[in-house]
Amino acid sequence: MICIEDYIKDLSPSKEYKESLVKYSSQSIKELDLPDNLVQQLCSASLPIKSDYCVFGENPITFYELPQKKCYALIPDTYIEIAKMEWVGNIAISLTNGFVWQIFPDYYRRSFMNSSIAQYTESLGAWLRFYPQFQDYVADMYDMNPQFSLFDNPEVYSPIKQKLKEIDAKAMESDDNYWVRCCEPDII
């Protein structure tokens, strides 16, 4: 029997991913009039600003060259929006506490992603490393057993859940959080 551990060899961000990371300069975000702690976060954490990554096969993330200050209708707080995900909202950082959120402006709701930009970047790098290995495993399992179901095999997500919890335990606390939802069998 094939197990997921045979496929998941490494969950650390790839060299390509690390090389795609760029920091915002304090000069470039000066006009946003941000709290000092958020300026420090934005200037010390790196993001894949000039890359085209997809969390899932057809969900590209477009990171902004310059972040944008935003308020969203019926969603509390003010944010710095740093990216747009093609099908599932925007990525924004709360000015109040520096938390990273998935924002659904058309639905007036948000979903917690990470406790900081640095933790978001590391989580994304781990996920991008996990997902192709996961896809290979699932394809092989379907070839061996056309009745294979992720609903019957939730342990498939154990390696990435553990890694995401190590990176940011708060990100994995609630079933409504972004990374927890990524590890659900109905999202593949």
Rank of each mutant, 00 (worst) to 15 (best):
S111K: 04
P76C: 04
Q119K: 11
M85C: 12
P67H: 00
F99Y: 10
Q102V: 03
K69V: 04
Q102C: 11
V88G: 01
L66V: 12
I117H: 01
I80Y: 06
K84G: 02
I91C: 00
P105D: 11
C71I: 09
K69A: 03
K70N: 13
R110F: 02
A118E: 11
P105T: 12
Q68W: 12
D106A: 15
T96C: 15
S111G: 08
S115L: 15
A73G: 05
F112N: 02
V100Q: 02
Q119M: 07
Q68G: 12
Y120I: 01
Q119V: 06
N114C: 07
N90A: 00
M113I: 14
A92H: 04
N97H: 13
I93N: 03
I117F: 01
N114Y: 02
G98S: 04
Y120S: 01
I103M: 04
P67T: 00
V88Y: 05
I103E: 04
L66D: 12
I75R: 14
P105W: 09
Y108L: 06
S94C: 05
Y79F: 14
P76R: 04
T121F: 05
V100A: 02
K69E: 03
I103V: 05
T78L: 00
Y79N: 07
A73V: 09
Q102K: 11
M113F: 15
S111A: 10
Y79H: 11
K69N: 02
L66S: 13
K84H: 06
W87Y: 13
Q68H: 13
R109Y: 15
A92T: 07
Y79V: 09
Q119S: 10
A83L: 05
C71V: 11
C71L: 09
